[in-house]
Amino acid sequence: MIRIENIYKSFNGFEVLKGISFQVEKGEILALIGGSGNGKSVILKHIVGLMKPDQGHVFIDGKNIGHLKGNDLEEIRGRIGFLFQNGALFTSFTVYDNVAFPLREKTKSSEKEIRERVLKELDQVGLAGAENKYPAELSGGMIKRTAFARALVIKPEVMLFDEPTTGLDPIIAHTILDLIKSLHEHLGFTAIIVSHELSRVFQIAHRVAMLHEGRIWTVGTPEEILSSKDPVVRQFISGVTGGSLKLY
């Protein structure tokens, strides 16, 4: 479903991605792990065409994202939900209006139908009753869940999660990851999760790809990664300092 071929990307002369290639099958959850500043979020932004690679290609269902424009790009993006690191909620809208926005603008649904859909999604992410709140009144976990509801309301085939648990306490972080797992089982979307919440992510991902030094260092099932003898992988999983992993 998603195929990334040999992507290179530099920022101000600093090469972040040095030939990234991997693919994600339909219905699969891939966890993308690696040190901070290694370009995990950059990869997600390449998948949706918010960034263009210096070299290489991204394909979704065989369509090269870099070559799509106008309606074709909109059509592909309409099938992808993206959960930003900070939620990226519209701060001047209420929770309800945030979730309703894509429906109002992209569909011909009546306000009654929109209301039903929005309330259903908010209920699904555990935010029933919070529809009249503004983002400034929400906790970190509620912001992520609102953003999740907004992404889900378009019924995406692909969900991209950019650090969905960053900045949350362990209980809320686990709640969010459990929510991703249960909604994946229910809706069957394809997903890529960038997260540092390794123990929980390893429980919900089908495969794990580790990014290191601008390359995919290793890919495998969570069991394979956990039993890896590679010193870099071992150091990252155990969180020990002073090894071959560079910190940014």
Binding site: L50, R77, G78, L89, K106
Partner: peptide
Amino acid sequence: GIMRTTEQIDAMELMGL
């Protein structure tokens, strides 16, 4: 500017808007 730095504009683009 705030919408740009908090990725609200990116979110809008990703909605196909």
